[in-house]
Design a protein around this nucleic acid. Structure first.
Length: 287
DNA sequence: ATCCTATCCTGGCTGC
DNA sequence: TGCAGCCAGGATAGGA
């Protein structure tokens, strides 16, 4: 599903086609995509505005709007599971799942497509109200091993649900949390309060490495949904370390990868590399 | 404070 | 082959 690397890929491809363009109108075919806004109010808010800057925060695509060179609100897009953003020329056939279309001044249009209708494209006047509370960007300088060690220790939550919590760290989802925990040899059900400083630093490094490699490969496309805006699938799915590898050998030790459920999410682990909290607690520390 | 469940949706898969 | 039913999955709200 679109997580940080997939959203970053979308931003990089859409940005050059969108920045500088003026929005000519809004055609809304599924109103709930607007997140409670009415189609008419939404259309008034965006029509005539210029897309000044396209950027990413967590899993959100943010489009800063301007009128006469002055800030005029923001469009925030969340792809959830099946959302896609395309900028395409006139005459492009969007198919069955177009939810919002914003015609632009150069004859192209920004299309928001979404099979499952969970995605959102919202307008907000101020950036503070445009985005919910989000934790640090994992690829920013503030996301250090020291920060993560302290933040983990302040809570007593299972690692996986904590890492999935966007208010804790922004941008991680089910795939990359499994990948990072496997890389750092940490069990998804281990308590955050018991992660040592050293293991926290390893986890930080694992998160960054996994995200950077996935961005380099333009994200993962393991089902028919996610595509780069140019229609190509990403290639990170061929790199998965544990995600979706149930029953296949662990890439590190060869033991069969297990699938368990944690926080109502399918979770992939190597039981040999990622010791369960129970057995880890009962283990006699090395002399 | 933390966890769990339901909700939103639909395509695709499983099993009969 | 056809069809009903189940499942995934990000975020959020509400209950335990």
């Amino acid at each position: 599903m679109p997580e940080l690397p997939e959203v970053e890929t979308v931003v990089r491809l859409v940005r050059p086609r969108l920045e500088g363009r003026t929005i000519r109108g809004a055609e809304v075919s599924w109103a709930r995509t607007l997140g409670g806004d009415s189609p008419s109010r939404f259309a008034r808010a965006v029509t005539g505005a210029r897309a000044a800057r396209v950027w990413r925060r967590g899993k959100y695509v943010v489009i800063d709007l301007e009128r006469a060179g002055r800030p005029a609100g923001h469009l925030t897009c969340h792809l959830r599971m099946t959302g896609r953003l395309h900028v395409e020329p006139r005459g492009w056939e969007p198919g069955l799942y177009e939810r919002v279309c914003l015609p632009l001044d150069d004859g192209t249009s920004l299309h928001f497509l979404d099979v499952r209708k969970f995605g959102r494209m919202c307008f907000a006047d101020r950036i503070e109200s445009a985005l919910p509370e989000l934790g640090p960007e994992p690829l920013s300088p503030e996301f250090t091993g020291a920060w993560l060690a302290t933040a983990l220790r302040r809570r007593r939550r299972m690692l996986k649900p904590l890492l999935l919590d966007q208010a804790f760290v922004a941008g991680l989802g089910n795939i990359y949390v499994d990948e990072a925990l496997w890389s750092a040899r940490l069990h998804p059900q281990a308590s955050s309060g018991r992660v040592s400083r050293r293991r926290a630093e390893e986890l930080r490094d694992a998160i960054c490495a996994v995200l950077e490699e996935a961005i380099r490969r333009e994200g993962a496309s393991f089902d028919s949904f996610y595509r780069t805006p140019e229609g190509r699938p990403g290639s990170y799915q061929h790199q998965f370390l544990v995600y979706g590898r149930t029953g296949r050998p662990c890439r590190r030790c060869g033991a069969a990868v297990a699938r368990i459920v944690v926080a109502q999410r399918g979770t992939h682990i190597c039981r040999r590399c990622q010791r369960s909290p129970r057995s880890a607690a009962g283990r006699i520390p090395p002399a």
